[in-house]
Nucleic acid binder design. Structure first.
Lengths: 149, 149
DNA sequence: ACACTGTATATATGGTATATACACACTATA
DNA sequence: TATAGTGTGTATATACCATATATACAGTGT
């Protein structure tokens, strides 16, 4: 696990310094499947979906996250650009990058769509492997149980 | 759909010419997800899993398949190499490429493993989307039903 | 010799990741 | 109220690797 932190963008004047929250982004690795920037995109979406990053919150700066994840600044930029295209975050030069108002909804919608796509793929692939839909559902229940325990 | 054909490698002498069987390989497209050679790999595995290609059968030649799919000979070669690494087929220079004895078993095993991996991904992604395992199973049943009808 | 098979080398293109230099926004302070 | 400083995001040029290709080469059977 790699832990990164970020500060709120505009601390109220006079208020005690806002303690750095922790943004958990899972193991970023060139060995893992998918490009580095995509792993960052997915990680940020997960933090938002889980509610650990709320609309209006600042994401870590390009440089901070790049240092923490041991990747280049450009790679973080690319990830944030992708998130911006998807309407999950927005960037302001000189200020930072922030979660959009509808960032939570978008993240969850996209994850739900992705889930459905994965299930469709599994149905097709399972059928080609000679498994019936019922066998597939049974397999899924088993995997779910394993995950719980 | 793109249809390709192949001839049996060694027609019995004097026998009537063996009618070309049809090897159905699904739409190979640069637009589809995944590299062209991977789409060919998956297509061949599906033909084998479905029993339309049996152990000992000859696959289409590099050039034949390349022409039919409108890709280069090298791309077909790469796909066949991948299949050979996986033990699904084997190639003999000057002769052709053939389905291995255990090609059917291997294809199905790999597809089954892939199916399981997809289900695991769906479970994780669904959880992050805020879906419970039960909701996921219900979604899966629904998708299966849609696929039937 | 011929017509088929697979093989090998060199090349082009695009995606991914990088280093370096640039531009904007806030803030402390002279 | 200027202005230097330190943080932010931005843009350009470069390196590397995966993917796909054209062309020429080598083996097999008739």
């Amino acid at each position: 696990m790699v832990y990164t932190h970020y500060m709120n963008p505009k601390p109220k004047p006079g208020a005690t310094p806002i303690p750095a929250r922790r943004l958990i982004i899972p193991p970023i690795s060139p060995a893992a499947s998918g490009p580095l920037y995509q792993q960052i995109v997915d990680g940020v979406k997960r933090e938002i979906s889980a509610g650990r990053l709320e609309p209006g919150d600042a994401l870590p700066s390009f440089r901070t996250l790049a240092e923490d994840l041991l990747v280049s600044l450009i790679t973080v930029k690319r990830a944030y650009e992708e998130l911006e295209r998807e309407g999950v975050v927005f960037s302001k030069q000189g200020l930072g990058t922030f979660v959009s108002d509808n960032g939570l909804a978008r993240s969850r919608e996209m994850k739900r769509d992705h889930t459905e796509a994965l299930l469709r793929d599994a149905l097709r692939e399972g059928e080609e492997a000679g498994l019936t839909p019922n066998e597939l559902i049974a397999l899924m229940k088993q995997l779910a149980k394993e995950k719980e325990g």
